[in-house]
Amino acid sequence: MTSCILLTGGAGFIGSHTHIALTAAGHKVVILDDFSNAQHSVPARLEQITGQPVTVIDADVRDADALAKVFATHTIDAVVHFAARKAVGESMAVPLDYFDVNINGLITLLRAMDRAGCRRLVFSSSATVYGVPDEAPTPETAPFRAMNPYGQTKITGEQMLGWLQASNPEWAVGVLRYFNPAGAHGSALIGEDPRDIPNNLMPYVAKVALGQLPRVMVFGNDYDTPDGTGVRDYIHVEDLARGHVLSLEKLLSTGQGHVVNLGTGRGYSVLEVIAAYQRASNRDLPHVITDRRPGDVPIYVARADKAAEVLGFRTEKGLDEMCASLWKWVSNMADGA
């Protein structure tokens, strides 16, 4: 069944890959993005990959008038909501900015959807809702523990959506708590492209491999992990995009919401990631140990069986494939593609 899907933040890293996956699945897609954390070249690259024109509205998700116009112009069947600020460290410094974009933006979007009678939403959540979890791999039943303002905005968003569904059974929401997205599209035409110094490990390592940064900063080596550095469950962005399609299609076919982790169930330390990227790039990556970063936690690894059961979702790509695809992407960009 062909549906028309609104992607807020659809020109960003995960949003752009989800656009490709949705288009491949036969859906029509409308992107809404203010390009605050995305390149204006992304829509043209998406057209090159998909062979189809890309519809883009340049607007902020907090702009109620712009959203009203989108729903008046297009018959939107469902929304996949990515538009948010997402850096843990930055959220500690500017929490009000995060509350404004991530919470007010969601409220503005939900009001526009409700007025338009569009009540199917895939919500981009995060493993940070678990704080420091009691167990790893971490199941969806783990309690909420906010360790930073970013994580709190995701907890608040999930709670709001839960109450909304309880108030009106016409709403169906897929909450996807994903772990650490990494890698790039196999075409090497799109990938993560942060404007400033990256907050996440993978793009930071990529800039070191390119010679754009001098060394990898390892924030802490005294965690209770095998080598003392933080452990994360990295998931290839193409796998993650496919998970969004499965969530969306589940909502459209059943009208029933769900909450699932999207991860591999396997964690890798910072030092293991550096080693894997050295193999992919065939370059030496100097690194230095420094103090722990405020708001970080020792380990995030997903318990991934519920996503398999509810959505039929299983990851297909491992860490080496993530590093290889990322290196291909950043090398392509460095060559001026």
Rank of each mutant, 00 (worst) to 15 (best):
G51P: 01
A166N: 13
M92L: 11
D233Q: 06
N282I: 04
H27W: 03
G26Y: 08
L46C: 02
Q278A: 12
R292E: 14
P143H: 11
L240P: 01
S91T: 13
I190D: 04
P286V: 12
Y178G: 02
G12F: 03
G267N: 03
R62K: 10
G162T: 09
Y268D: 14
P286M: 12
R85E: 15
D114A: 12
I5K: 03
T153N: 03
F144W: 13
P43R: 03
S3M: 10
A146G: 15
F35P: 05
V42C: 04
K28H: 12
G26A: 15
I155G: 02
R115S: 15
V310H: 04
H74W: 07
D305A: 02
D63N: 11
V122W: 06
Q165D: 08
R242I: 00
A21D: 03
G131C: 11
T141R: 09
V101T: 14
I57L: 12
F35H: 12
R62L: 02
I20R: 01
F13P: 09
T229I: 07
I5D: 05
G105F: 03
T73A: 08
G295S: 15
A11F: 01
G117L: 12
T73W: 04
D58C: 06
V79I: 08
G318M: 02
A334R: 14
V70W: 02
A59R: 12
T2P: 07
V245N: 02
V237K: 00
L46E: 02
Y204W: 13
P143S: 13
A209Y: 10
N37D: 13
C4A: 14
